[in-house]
Design a protein around this nucleic acid. Sequence first.
DNA 1: CCATGCAGTCAACAACTGTTCTCCGGGATC
DNA 2: GATCCCGGAGAACAGTTGTTGACTGCATGG
Lengths: 208, 208
Amino acid sequence: MSHTLGIRQAQKQKTRQAFLDAALELLEEQSLSSLGLREVTRAVGVAPTAFYRHFRSTADLGVALVEEALGSLHPMIGATVSAAGDSDQRIAGAVELIAHHVDAYPAHVRFIARERHGGVQPVREAIGAQLARFAEEVRAELATHPEAEGWSDDDLLMLAGLYVDQMLMTASLFLATLDAPEQERARVADVASRRMRLISIGRRHWLG
Amino acid sequence: MSHTLGIRQAQKQKTRQAFLDAALELLEEQSLSSLGLREVTRAVGVAPTAFYRHFRSTADLGVALVEEALGSLHPMIGATVSAAGDSDQRIAGAVELIAHHVDAYPAHVRFIARERHGGVQPVREAIGAQLARFAEEVRAELATHPEAEGWSDDDLLMLAGLYVDQMLMTASLFLATLDAPEQERARVADVASRRMRLISIGRRHWLG
DNA sequence: CCATGCAGTCAACAACTGTTCTCCGGGATC
DNA sequence: GATCCCGGAGAACAGTTGTTGACTGCATGG
């Protein structure tokens, strides 16, 4: 159904993507509220005024980045929750999935972790809304599992939120070990696994 | 023992504190990496060059703010962990303590939540180091409780870190409800309490 | 094939930034 | 009481910032 884009629109999306990529790279060592419009256009190799053809402001750019970054995070969360095997195997698989995602999209993870509590209100709200949607999806997924019998929807949502937050926390810790010895990464993976295990145990004994 | 400060040093500390206060207020709607030197001096009502008499750079100011903000958080964490009563009472008390602290020092909480993953490396590292110290203290406190029997030091530290992160998470959520209806705050307190309860249950069944 | 639309350019604007150097006044020290 | 020390003021520097308006070339739709 997707109509083949004309040369024109294709080029526009291309430079728009260039803006997003350049911004994510610049945001490696600063936060969105200090990201300058000219700074981005310079990195893209385009006139400052071209920015306005794609975004109203840097905050607008930020909201677009939220979709980009959380778009890549979304399938990861789904895969993490619906992993197979017994409890410990599932946890190990989930932690490995997170580590792999951080390797593949470090800038995405960094952006979300940084701007979730960052200084730009619209971006904060966009991230919060999307994460709430993720938690809702996780809740729905958990509800299909047999262990969820007897759980209220509210408690399931609480658990889902705990999982989502824990994933982000873990991802952020992995991020800090990107250029650190392998031993450090193993340590992070170990602690994250034990945290997840404790939550799993709490989940198992929640009722009664 | 403390020698009475001379007029000179007293005045210096006074304006230094004015810098910290002004910075915290400005950081309400932006992040440290976008905080300008002149911006701060303007808020204090002092010449731009006076800044250098107290700090080398804005990153240096940030590190000083870490001590200020975490200094106020420290006793709160201690009180939270060593609260009295049965499990549910302790949890309710802890959540209330957190809510009260957010009311009393919103700017401190905001600063820590924002800059913990923020764009200024030295500040990030300072926060991480202090939080690690907090977790260590919590571990030591937990070790004195009878429920900790049979726990390895490593597992206790894992639990302590989980508590610390959960406190910050909860505090950050309370922060977002500062100018929201009371109902919203109650909702946050409820979810936070249930999270803590799940963790407590996991803790109780961790062994065996 | 021609007219319209639109991504991107260019020049210019006032306002702002961090940093240096020089200077001043008054508390501190002997 | 003379001297030194030092927190702060002032002026000036070269760069940077966001935003404007009028322009150009080219893909598009009639």
